[in-house]
């Protein structure tokens, strides 16, 4: 398996995502520059966190039009796996790969803290190795992470199993207090209809080493390995 990590001007989690693949999975990973026009044979694309293009206009709005994103969208349309983390989630949403939108946190504060997530769907390329209902701890670090969608769209993505992760408390309950940004229905991550594109605000690539407080991000990257066995 070869994983391509897209580096935009302002990306700051691209190296972490690359290391996650190389050091945790011992798979091939290649950095893809935003001006590139080809994915260099990558089977999986990671859109990493950061502040691409300074988050001008809206988070992810400009990055979406970069040359590499045309290739990423084409790859996703053919069923190719794409993972968007934090800013990468915002970019995937702006590119129309995932439903909804991400707005300024309800608190108006940049929130950097560990959160607990409940795995809502295991029918995705990034959660297939996790148990449904499993609780995972990993950090968030964002100012624009409030997931919103129209009421009908929200019911549709819930009904079709497109909610991948929810913010919950230590007991697994999706409470308002456990919701760090005011996301509708505590949604922390979503997937497309086929489970091949996943976007999430929390950072699994920052939850791989015991030294950093959690290794719960591993199961998400290990899920990618099922792609090679398939």
């Amino acid at each position: 398996m070869k994983v391509g990590v897209v580096s935009f001007p302002g990306s700051n989690c691209d190296e972490d995502a690359l290391l996650a693949i190389v050091e945790q999975l011992h798979e091939q990973a290649v950095m893809l520059w935003h001006k590139d026009h080809d994915l260099q044979g990558a089977d999986v694309v990671i859109l990493p966190g950061g502040f691409s293009y300074g988050d001008y206009l809206r988070s992810g709005a400009i990055a979406r039009f970069s040359p590499i994103m045309q290739e990423v969208v084409a790859h996703a349309r053919k069923g190719g796996p794409v993972i968007g983390i934090c800013n990468g989630f915002q970019i995937a949403v702006e590119a129309g790969l995932l439903p909804g939108a991400l707005l300024r946190n309800e608190s108006l504060q940049f929130r950097s803290l560990p959160v607990t997530l409940r795995v809502e769907s295991t029918a995705t390329v990034f959660t297939s190795a996790a148990a449904k209902g499993a609780l995972l701890t990993m950090p968030i670090a964002h100012g624009d992470g409030r997931f919103v969608a129209g009421p009908e769209e929200l019911d549709r993505i819930e009904g079709e199993g497109q909610v991948a992760f929810r913010y919950v408390d230590a007991t697994g309950a999706a409470t308002a207090a456990a919701n760090p940004n005011g996301s509708m229905r505590n949604i922390a991550g979503v997937t497309n209809r086929t489970g091949t594109v996943v976007g999430m605000m929390p950072h699994p690539e920052r939850a791989l080493e015991p030294l950093l407080g959690s290794t719960d991000g591993k199961v998400l990257f290990e899920s990618l390995l099922s792609l090679t066995k398939a």
């Binding site: 709005a61 039009f65 702006e94 909804g100 939108a101 919103v148 969608a149």
Partner: peptide, 8 residues
């Protein structure tokens, strides 16, 4: 196409 987000 760009300036306004159709969702929000």
């Amino acid at each position: 196409r760009l300036l306004a987000n159709p969702v929000t």
